[in-house]
Amino acid sequence: MKGTQKHVIIAGGGVAGMEAAGALAEMGYRVTLVEKGQDPGGHLLQWHALFPDSRPAEEVKSYLRKRIGNHNITVITGTAVEKIKHHPGGTVTVNLSGSKEEKADAVIVATGFDLFDARRKEEYGYGIYDNVITAPELETMFNGGRVTKADGSVPSRIGMIHCVGSRDEKVNNNHCSKVCCVTAVKQAIELRKMMPACEVFCFYMDMRMYGPYYEELYRESQEVHNVNFIRGKVSEASVNINNRLVIKVEDTLAGRPLKMELDIMVLMVGMEMAEAGTKLAVASGFRLGINRFLEAGDHHYGNNLSGVSGVFYAGTCTAPMNITDTISHARAAVAETVRYLDGR
């Protein structure tokens, strides 16, 4: 590095932010990683195992932890980035919560996503019925090594409800969250492995197995693990006298309505633009797309550009992505940042 060390602030300490911080620090840049939660790691922290190979999430977590262990990185937690402003002359100022202002040469926005609040699909009864849980909550149960109903009993039939808050005009989300289909398949297999006596049903609109080995996993789930797939959107859930969930769904392949009793219903909640990220974008004047995620400068070859000089985007603040794509996207953001800093 010539002259003084250049400084990059990264807003958001999830997968994208951590990877970008690590890559920049490796190249000798001074990095401040700002995370609003208590620990960096983002949504990954809740995860037990990852698709498509069920590797322990801990492996990726420890990789990322090591990545930000570089002495060039300062991690600030419990703090949110509230506003980013580029000044003529190249300085970018960043307002942090608690009225602190930091100066940097460039900023990477990696504010990520929020999980869809399942209570907004009230017909599924999340928060109303005991045994309606979300995919991350199931993951937490996996972490604990036991999947039980709220009363502690062992379930004999579990339903996985796809597309909760995704591809749903009624909640103003037209986008596909991409990772829920394969997550459902992964979790279904894990459930079947853990409790061979428990039936598992997936209720889907389309199975979007877009990534490498996803399709294979989907096939394996049916051929090896006997996971049942029913094409149809669940319309409503209720409980019967035995406190068992009853769902109504149309089996669109068989062309008939269906009623089914379940012990646990797992809602595959989708991704939405993070609320903190939206606030930051509104305050800083970043463009939001019709899906409410950050709109990058160019959809094909400028996917990390913000349109504001010195500010770059990384990860799921631009669109839903899996971990693989998030890490690639973060590295691309680093490449754009370095090109910008070298060009000045």
Partner: peptide, 9 residues
């Protein structure tokens, strides 16, 4: 109302 089970409850 079946789509808003909290009302039924």
């Amino acid at each position: 109302t079946h789509l808003t089970p909290s009302v039924i409850v």
